[in-house]
Simulated scan of single mutants.
Amino acid sequence: MVPLQRRSLLAGIASLPLATILADPRLARAAAEETQTVTITTPGGHKVSGALALPEAKPAPTVLLIHEWWGLNDQIKTMAVEFAKQGYVALAVDLYGGKVAMADDRDAAKALMSSVDGSVATETLTAWAEWLRTHESSTGKLGTVGWCFGGGWSLNASIATPVDATVIYYGRVNRASEDLVNLKGPVLGHFATRDGFINSDMIGEFEKMMAEAKKSLEVHWYVADHAFANPTGSRYDEEDAALAWTRTLTFLARNLKG
């Protein structure tokens, strides 16, 4: 039985804006604890886990969420809970094997990101995608959403396995047109004008490659910096984050619920 104090906390969280929950470590932890840890073994024999959140109404379309370079922390787990509230079977995957960098330790985050084996990550995401498509609560529709490091992997996953919609938050998109032809569904990208990493040159080339591959791409620019949608960081932009979130929900509803 859930203790009275915790029930009251969860009831209070339900009425709070997403940004408020994410910005408060105590609230984010409480929301993250509403997810269920699930584990599978990939075809290559790797045991991998993720945080699952289910909607009230089922069956429902599914979303595969991919974390930032910090790892599968409470913020991303909370996003899974929020997507479930929006009517999706949401799974936040873990590409770091349970390791998480502290929010102020960029060196640790960089080390974790650099340690990822691309082939293993691709196999992991492909396996989770299949798991979601065939989940008992799934309609069979699948989208991917990723932030920063996860933004690039949102695109990579959609190239590796059939996905109905792909959302990229300021992730690396330097892929050739011969790779992009494998995309099944449309792509939505959120990018920042002051981002020194994912800049206009990269996005311009991505737009060119997508056009050559004859694939659907919707790009939005925000007068903001990298990681503008992360309320726990110093570069958070409340207005732009809210607009990007609205656009994401509209895009996913159009392609997964229609």
Rank of each mutant, 00 (worst) to 15 (best):
R106S: 07
A60V: 10
A108V: 05
K47G: 13
A80I: 11
D107Y: 04
T62A: 15
K85Y: 07
V38K: 11
D74R: 07
G45C: 14
L54F: 14
A30Y: 13
P59H: 09
D117A: 08
L95C: 03
N73A: 10
G118M: 12
K85N: 13
T126Q: 07
V38S: 06
A80R: 09
L95V: 06
G45P: 12
A32I: 11
W69G: 00
L112M: 11
G44W: 10
E33T: 01
M113A: 15
M79I: 12
E56S: 14
T39D: 12
T42R: 12
L64P: 02
W70V: 01
P43A: 10
S114R: 13
G118T: 00
E56W: 11
A101I: 04
A109W: 00
D24A: 07
S49M: 13
A109N: 03
G45N: 13
S119N: 15
E123S: 12
L64D: 05
S49C: 13
G50E: 05
Q75M: 09
K58Y: 04
S49E: 14
I21S: 03
T78D: 02
Q86E: 13
D74K: 04
R133S: 14
T39V: 15
R29Q: 15
Q75H: 14
P43S: 10
W69S: 04
Q75V: 14
D104V: 09
A32E: 08
G97T: 08
K99L: 05
V48E: 01
A23Y: 04
D104E: 12
L65I: 14
D74C: 09
P25K: 05
R133P: 12
W131N: 10
A111E: 08
A84W: 11
A103Y: 10
L91Y: 02
A23E: 09
K58I: 14
R29A: 14
A51Q: 08
W128I: 02
A111G: 05
D105Q: 11
P43W: 10
A90T: 00
W70M: 02
T78N: 05
D94C: 06
T124P: 01
A101F: 08
G98V: 10
V89I: 15
V81F: 01
E68N: 06
T41D: 10
M79Y: 15
G50T: 08
A30M: 12
A23S: 13
P25R: 08
A121Q: 01
G50P: 03
A28P: 02
A111I: 05
V38G: 07
G118N: 06
L72P: 00
D107G: 09
D105H: 04
L112C: 03
A129W: 00
W128Y: 08
I21Y: 11
A57H: 15
V116M: 04
E34H: 03
S114F: 09
L95A: 01
T126R: 09
I76N: 00
A111Q: 08
